Deep mutational scan, measured.
Amino acid sequence: MDVFMKGLSKAKEGVVAAAEKTKQGVAEAAGKTKEGVLYVGSKTKEGVVHGVATVAEKTKEQVTNVGGAVVTGVTAVAQKTVEGAGSIAAATGFVKKDQLGKNEEGAPQEGILEDMPVDPDNEAYEMPSEEGYQDYEPEA
């Protein structure tokens, strides 16, 4: 019985440690998101679009440190934060509304985080759909 109880105690310690790591990862992701939003706020009209992409990228980098179902929630929060940063930029006159959601080359930025393969159960990952990809044929 002692062996059984000791095993359960060790398992509990492992769960607590994993929860603490997840909590730490979420806190880091939130900190990076805040950094990115402050970065966007300090940019001029020309830099705002690039700044919004930076927020998304920093958040995406930190999301990889967070495991399990938390990833889905962090990704949703990050996307809403990026959308909010863009709205703030438009409201303050840093950028025109028609410039939001495009990178410096004018290509749409939507789907940055949505296409990231995420499995809350950590069982399997699927690649994003290939609808947006084109076949590449090298020139002879």
Score class of each variant (00 low, 15 high):
118 V>R: 04
71 V>N: 02
102 K>M: 12
13 E>S: 07
15 V>F: 04
27 A>E: 01
83 E>A: 08
106 G>I: 05
120 P>Y: 09
94 F>I: 07
87 S>L: 14
131 E>H: 14
104 E>P: 06
8 L>Q: 00
97 K>L: 00
2 D>Q: 11
76 A>Y: 11
7 G>K: 02
99 Q>T: 09
123 E>Q: 06
96 K>M: 15
122 N>Y: 09
93 G>A: 01
61 E>Y: 07
128 P>G: 04
8 L>H: 00
39 Y>L: 03
63 V>W: 15
110 E>I: 09
55 V>G: 02
75 T>G: 08
28 E>P: 01
91 A>F: 13
121 D>C: 09
70 V>R: 01
35 E>Q: 06
91 A>Q: 10
17 A>H: 01
3 V>M: 07
104 E>K: 00
121 D>M: 07
46 E>G: 04
24 Q>E: 05
66 V>E: 01
51 G>Q: 02
137 E>T: 05
24 Q>H: 08
23 K>S: 14
98 D>E: 06
128 P>S: 00
34 K>E: 06
52 V>T: 00
138 P>E: 11
55 V>C: 07
71 V>M: 03
17 A>W: 14
61 E>M: 04
54 T>C: 14
27 A>K: 15
93 G>F: 09
58 K>E: 04
107 A>I: 07
49 V>W: 12
19 A>V: 15
16 V>P: 01
126 E>N: 05
89 A>R: 11
125 Y>N: 06
137 E>R: 12
74 V>Q: 02
25 G>F: 13
10 K>D: 04
104 E>F: 11
73 G>C: 13
93 G>M: 07
49 V>D: 02
75 T>Y: 14
130 E>H: 10
1 M>C: 00
124 A>E: 07
19 A>R: 03
110 E>P: 03
46 E>P: 03
73 G>D: 05
20 E>L: 01
98 D>T: 07
11 A>M: 14
35 E>L: 15
5 M>E: 01
56 A>F: 15
60 K>N: 05
66 V>N: 03
109 Q>K: 10
70 V>M: 10
135 D>F: 07
23 K>T: 04
65 N>D: 03
23 K>N: 04
115 D>Y: 05
47 G>Y: 09
21 K>T: 04
25 G>R: 08
2 D>M: 00
82 V>F: 08
65 N>I: 06
43 K>H: 04
119 D>L: 03
93 G>K: 04
115 D>W: 14
25 G>C: 15
46 E>D: 12
49 V>E: 07
117 P>W: 03
80 K>L: 13
139 E>D: 07
111 G>V: 15
10 K>M: 03
30 A>D: 00
17 A>F: 10
45 K>Y: 13
124 A>P: 12
138 P>Y: 10
49 V>S: 06
57 E>C: 08
32 K>M: 02
17 A>R: 14
112 I>L: 13
62 Q>G: 00
115 D>E: 09
62 Q>T: 11
17 A>I: 13
130 E>L: 06
96 K>I: 12
2 D>G: 01
103 N>A: 13
113 L>D: 10
77 V>Y: 15
37 V>I: 14
97 K>S: 10
26 V>K: 00
27 A>R: 11
97 K>E: 09
35 E>N: 14
132 G>W: 12
100 L>C: 06
91 A>Y: 13
56 A>G: 02
44 T>C: 05
2 D>I: 09
29 A>R: 05
85 A>D: 07
9 S>V: 02
2 D>F: 13
80 K>C: 05
109 Q>Y: 11
129 S>R: 06
27 A>S: 15
48 V>A: 05
18 A>W: 14
94 F>N: 06
125 Y>Q: 08
58 K>G: 01
32 K>F: 15
37 V>K: 01
30 A>P: 02
122 N>V: 10
31 G>H: 05
86 G>Y: 05
135 D>S: 12
97 K>M: 01
19 A>F: 15
15 V>S: 00
137 E>V: 10
125 Y>W: 09
8 L>V: 03
117 P>R: 05
44 T>I: 05
130 E>S: 14
79 Q>H: 02
59 T>K: 02
83 E>Q: 07
120 P>R: 07
129 S>Y: 09
139 E>R: 07
116 M>H: 11
90 A>L: 14
28 E>L: 09
33 T>Y: 04
15 V>C: 04
79 Q>A: 05
114 E>Q: 00
127 M>P: 04
6 K>Y: 06
105 E>S: 09
30 A>H: 00
53 A>M: 14
97 K>V: 13
130 E>K: 07
109 Q>V: 15
133 Y>T: 09
34 K>H: 11
98 D>H: 07
20 E>I: 15
65 N>T: 08
55 V>E: 00
11 A>D: 00
55 V>S: 01
31 G>N: 11
58 K>F: 02
134 Q>D: 13
130 E>D: 07
22 T>Q: 01
66 V>Q: 02
130 E>M: 05
107 A>E: 13
25 G>D: 05
30 A>K: 05
89 A>S: 07
99 Q>E: 15
84 G>P: 02
66 V>K: 06
47 G>L: 15
56 A>M: 06
6 K>V: 03
19 A>C: 05
49 V>I: 13
103 N>F: 11
66 V>I: 12
80 K>P: 03
38 L>M: 09
4 F>P: 00
12 K>R: 02
39 Y>R: 00
139 E>T: 02
110 E>W: 15
30 A>V: 04
30 A>Y: 14
90 A>N: 08
31 G>D: 00
88 I>L: 13
62 Q>L: 07
48 V>W: 09
86 G>E: 13
37 V>L: 12
11 A>S: 00
26 V>W: 11
98 D>R: 07
62 Q>W: 06
136 Y>V: 07
53 A>W: 03
42 S>H: 00
97 K>Q: 03
24 Q>T: 05
44 T>S: 13
90 A>C: 10
71 V>I: 00
39 Y>M: 02
65 N>P: 03
30 A>I: 14
75 T>A: 12
16 V>L: 13
85 A>Y: 12
107 A>K: 08
53 A>T: 01
96 K>V: 15
76 A>N: 01
2 D>L: 07
41 G>E: 01
13 E>R: 01
83 E>G: 09
120 P>L: 04
75 T>N: 09
25 G>N: 06
86 G>K: 06
130 E>I: 10
103 N>R: 11
6 K>G: 01
21 K>H: 10
64 T>R: 13
96 K>R: 15
72 T>W: 05
11 A>P: 00
60 K>C: 10
46 E>V: 15
51 G>V: 12
28 E>N: 08
34 K>Q: 02
130 E>R: 02
123 E>S: 13
100 L>A: 12
113 L>K: 14
56 A>N: 06
91 A>S: 05
44 T>G: 09
93 G>T: 02
93 G>C: 07
126 E>C: 10
33 T>D: 00
22 T>L: 07
54 T>R: 12
3 V>C: 09
54 T>I: 15
25 G>M: 14
121 D>F: 05
13 E>N: 13
132 G>D: 14
6 K>E: 04
73 G>I: 10
136 Y>P: 06
35 E>D: 03
48 V>E: 01
43 K>C: 10
77 V>T: 05
60 K>H: 09
81 T>W: 12
61 E>N: 02
86 G>H: 13
23 K>L: 06
48 V>Y: 03
88 I>P: 02
127 M>F: 13
28 E>A: 04
30 A>R: 03
99 Q>N: 06
92 T>M: 14
82 V>Q: 10
17 A>K: 13
35 E>G: 08
133 Y>M: 15
75 T>V: 11
29 A>H: 04
131 E>T: 08
68 G>C: 14
33 T>A: 06
21 K>G: 00
41 G>W: 03
87 S>A: 11
95 V>P: 09
55 V>H: 01
54 T>Q: 14
103 N>P: 04
47 G>S: 14
125 Y>G: 11
57 E>Q: 10
30 A>E: 00
78 A>H: 12
120 P>C: 04
58 K>C: 02
3 V>P: 00
76 A>E: 08
57 E>V: 13
116 M>I: 08
116 M>P: 12
45 K>W: 15
10 K>E: 02
96 K>H: 15
32 K>A: 06
121 D>P: 11
60 K>F: 05
62 Q>Y: 02
69 A>Q: 09
111 G>E: 11
5 M>T: 01
43 K>W: 15
2 D>T: 05
6 K>I: 12
5 M>P: 00
15 V>Q: 00
134 Q>T: 12
75 T>E: 08
66 V>F: 11
94 F>K: 00
108 P>N: 09
134 Q>H: 02
45 K>Q: 14
